[in-house]
């Protein structure tokens, strides 16, 4: 099995903060808001710049109430529902993210399609889980820092959901990290988990996004800055996986950059 890429080994970290990166980000923004793209659309760059788009399907999994829908909404720069209710059925969200590759200095437009499905819909309707897992390129496992059970459920989730797809990228995200005062998941447990599973583990805060001057529109740039580490990390693991699958990288663990 492929080991995950080390952070910063595939994607230039913080490139989106550079002048060049900001130019590219402009095509997924409009008047400082995030642009929403239909399935027939993609970001348009000024004519001389033509870049490749790499599309990936990502299934977001985790116990009910950990914040799957909220995470996807944050990644897409959309409003996070104020009151929690279980997601009805499957919903997918497309997020475009330009990133620069370390090896070739090339910019690639990543197109992530997040698949989010409510827990009770998964249980009630047999067709939902297979549809979510079908040809997925990555699994994103969510737990909440304020819900111990959701963390303890991770090994079960990993086996249940990603068990039959061993070669696929798996990442773990801890949500509601801002509420560290009430955390149910201490650091030592995370360390143990990391050692046991060797999976990339990220934390996200569940704080309201910054607004533009009008007071109610979400600030697209600020939202991207909040979520850049997740998007870069996903891009990194997925690109790395493709390289390995195409035989462009050595697969033995010793040679994996660390």
């Amino acid at each position: 099995m492929t080991r995950p890429a080390a952070p910063g080994s595939v994607i230039v970290p913080d490139w989106q903060e550079s002048a060049e990166g900001k130019e590219y980000l402009a095509c997924i923004l409009r008047k400082n808001r995030r642009r929403v793209f239909g399935l027939l659309e993609r970001p348009v760059l000024p004519p001389p710049v033509a870049i490749d788009t790499a599309s990936y399907k990502i299934f977001v999994s985790g116990k009910s109430g950990v914040g799957k829908t909220a995470l996807v909404a944050k990644l897409a720069g959309l409003e996070v529902p104020v009151v929690h209710h279980e997601t009805t059925g499957i919903q997918t969200t497309v997020v475009f993210w330009p990133a620069k590759l370390q090896a070739s200095d090339r910019v690639v437009m990543f197109r992530f399609e997040f698949w989010d499905c409510g827990e009770s819909a998964l249980k009630k309707f047999d067709h939902m889980l297979p549809a979510c897992k079908d040809k997925t390129d990555a699994f994103l496992f969510l737990f909440s820092f304020t819900d111990r059970a959701s963390f303890e459920d991770l090994p079960g989730q990993l086996a249940r959901v990603a068990g039959e797809a061993p070669g696929v990228v798996r990442m773990v995200i801890g949500s509601k990290f801002d509420q560290y005062m009430h955390t149910d998941v201490p650091e030592r447990d995370l360390t143990a988990f990391r050692q046991a599973w060797e999976l990339p583990l990220l934390r996200v805060k569940s704080v309201p996004g910054r607004r533009l001057a009008d007071g109610h529109t979400l600030d697209g740039r600020a939202g991207l800055a909040d979520m850049a580490h997740v998007l870069n990390s996903l891009a990194e693991q997925l690109w790395h996986q493709d390289q390995v699958a195409a035989g462009l990288l050595p697969t033995s663990p010793e040679d994996t950059p660390s």
Binding site: V36, G38, L78, E79, T88, G89, I90, Q91, T92, K124
Partner: peptide, 10 residues
Amino acid sequence: LPPQAARDYP
């Protein structure tokens, strides 16, 4: 419904 790229809604 809030905007989504696609849905499978019972």
